[in-house]
């Protein structure tokens, strides 16, 4: 498993596509679909954690894939409880995915920073 993180619009997917030679039909956009087996790249992981309280049933699908996620935690902790809970479970999951990943890369302005 490989985890790619970074802020919005930093070029995370473009970088992953060129670095790992991912083809368009191998990418599953979690903003428009729940996870399905057989994809090489799952992007917009933050959309999945926003929709569901518990995403653990799908985590095994990511085992041999590239997971792409936005960083959410650098703003003010919001007043709204649901918004807070989303950041909380997203952060916890990213730590879990990162610990099980062979490599973790943060993308900044199109450039990679290898964290693991």
């Amino acid at each position: 498993m490989i985890l790619i993180i970074g802020g919005s619009y930093q070029g995370k997917l473009s970088w992953a596509v060129s670095r790992y030679g991912i083809k368009e039909n191998e990418i599953l956009d979690l903003a428009v679909s729940d996870p399905l087996p057989g994809y090489g790249c799952y992007t917009h992981f933050e959309s999945l954690t926003r929709r569901y309280d518990d995403v653990s049933q799908w985590l095994p699908l990511f085992k041999d894939a590239v997971v792409i996620s936005r960083e959410l935690g650098c703003g003010v902790v919001p007043m709204d409880a649901e918004e807070r809970v989303w950041r909380e479970r997203h952060g916890v999951l990213l730590k879990k995915i990162a610990s099980g990943s062979d490599s973790v890369v943060r993308i900044f302005c199109g450039f990679p920073e290898v964290l693991k």
Binding site: Y9, R70, G73, G75
Partner: peptide
């Protein structure tokens, strides 16, 4: 300014 890493 770097304004892309929050969850809003």
């Amino acid at each position: 300014d770097e304004i892309w890493r929050d969850g809003t």
